[in-house]
Design a protein around this nucleic acid. Structure first.
Lengths: 129, 129
DNA sequence: CTAAACCTTGTCGCCAGCGTCAAGGCAAGG
DNA sequence: CCTTGCCTTGACGCTGGCGACAAGGTTTAG
């Protein structure tokens, strides 16, 4: 299959596929005329990449998963390096969630304060142009 | 006070102060030699800006708060436009938290799956250069 | 013959809030 | 006079995952 078909089947763009290749994640054979040619394995690789990017991973985070798939596993998750990344990401996500919880709390407090002091002087809205 | 002192007192950089001014958030008088001169009000303005940026606001989100302070209020929160932004941000934060909760759940699931299938073929780590 | 629909490499743009140099002016102390 | 340390404007870089365009080659269908 060529790059257009792969892009469509994987739900992404040809631009992205070339980008992944430039960063060493996707591999392509070349046909006589120089076109990229992919097999079914690359389709699975690209789908793995997409799934992880959608979750918020960076390309570097994705690498171990691709290597794991290429090593012949049915899932990219099962290798030690992938597990390390998963653990690290879980910690990161927890940290962000905690941080956002604090932010949420502060916004809540500010809102309450604002509503309790409605009566003060405020700027007029800018007039319509 | 001049820009260096303001930066230090507000806990930011001169570069940022000029940036805020270029975007219409901070105002400066000019002394005879062209130096920027600030009063205590601007210090309060910059502190408000910093506090909101640290929470994850963008410069555009901050504008109403600055206007509110300039209108003579002791807090930038109490004006209608500020309240609107606070409400909007609260909704946004809630959405992100929900999303991250789902991500967290998925990572958890993937980890569990990975650990349940440790025994598969995995790539060797790249040897030391 | 030619248009259409693929493909190639290469390059610039985007978002946002700055960091960081460049090249120079101004004020004060030794 | 000269250095030091403040200040000025201007402009490029950065991060990341692409989108979008340029300028061309290839293959197929009509």
């Amino acid at each position: 299959m060529r790059i257009g078909e792969l892009a469509e089947r994987a739900g992404t763009s040809t631009r992205s596929l070339r980008y992944y290749e430039a960063h060493g994640l996707v591999r392509a054979q070349r046909s006589a005329n120089g076109y990229r040619v992919y097999d079914e394995t690359e389709l699975r690789v690209v789908r793995e990449i997409r799934a992880l990017l959608d979750v918020g991973f960076g390309l570097d985070d994705v690498r171990p998963f691709v290597a794991c798939l290429r090593a012949g596993n049915t899932s990219g998750d099962v290798c030690p390096d992938s597990v390390l990344v998963l653990r690290r990401k879980l910690v990161e996500v927890d940290a962000v969630i905690d941080r956002l919880g604090a932010v949420r709390q502060q916004l809540h407090t500010q809102l309450a304060h604002a509503i309790a002091h409605r009566e003060e002087t405020c700027p007029k809205r800018r007039p319509a142009p």
